[in-house]
Design a protein around this nucleic acid. Sequence first.
DNA 1: AAAATATATCTCGACGTCGAGATACTTGCC
DNA 2: GGCAAGTATCTCGACGTCGAGATATATTTT
Lengths: 165, 165
Amino acid sequence: MEDEVDRLVAAWRRERPDLDVEPLEVLSRVSRLARHLDRARRLAFAEVGLEPWEFDVLTALRRAGAPYQLSPGALLTQTLVTSGTMTNRIDRLAKKELVERLPDPSDRRGVLVRLTANGRDKADESLAGLLTQERAILAELSRAQRHELAGLLRRLTGPFDNVPS
Amino acid sequence: MEDEVDRLVAAWRRERPDLDVEPLEVLSRVSRLARHLDRARRLAFAEVGLEPWEFDVLTALRRAGAPYQLSPGALLTQTLVTSGTMTNRIDRLAKKELVERLPDPSDRRGVLVRLTANGRDKADESLAGLLTQERAILAELSRAQRHELAGLLRRLTGPFDNVPS
DNA sequence: AAAATATATCTCGACGTCGAGATACTTGCC
DNA sequence: GGCAAGTATCTCGACGTCGAGATATATTTT
């Protein structure tokens, strides 16, 4: 099946036959697919009354395991947002009583963000919904193909996730 | 090489062994990689004095071929933003004299957005820079692997790009 | 040919993100 | 111990996006 990137690449080959646009075959698809996924996730989470950004924060805490707490800094590296954004997110989640802020006992500069019981329920509930939706999207591929795809993507994300930047 | 998604998946398997989180192996990597790419692109374009969103619009017009014009609606489907956003983008690009708005002669509701000579130069210049950067990221993979990866991604983007939604 | 429906674009207020700088505490070095 | 450099978080103004509604024109229906 042809997609928008096939059309995009064909257009470049016509307009700029001097350039090798092969990299776009992979990376433009990644960007566009991510955008489609954002939209789809927004719809799925609306049923649970959550925004995608709320899901990202709540599930990062949920994954940490009991007592479901992390520093804002740890949340930054997991969610790939800036510090100002995270402060704002925590404020809003605290106002909805899905998380609470505690002083870090081992570092007085620091803070710990902890999931409330309510927040934990939301996290569990929304994860199940997300997985159902993602399974439908991935039904296009066989199990072996999904594994292959995951492996190839890991080679690209690895360098980003492992530099200190 | 392990990445953040490997850690994420391992954490879920520990916390929620009852759930099958295999879909995350693919789709979380897509979302995270897209976010890394956004950041990298922002840096690359800054050298040319462009924002990523400006690149997206200018190159869509450039690809259309002479006379380098498209309707706002056509730009919407290519860039995956909403109509209000596109109006705003065109306004700002017009103020910088990279594009101009013309009435559509065949539909008086419509408008055509056309690249100026200046805008065309910017588009060409920034595309070359982007490709250089993307080639570096993709150097992790062999030519055959890149082709394989592009093919698998196409199976996922195809359904999104071909529904009338 | 009038009415109803559909389409293309724009308007505008609400919202989330960014990012540079500020603050407060900690760590390493002399 | 005291000072310099480093680190964690927060503050806040600027900016871009969203999305529902408004407007104008096209197309279809009766």
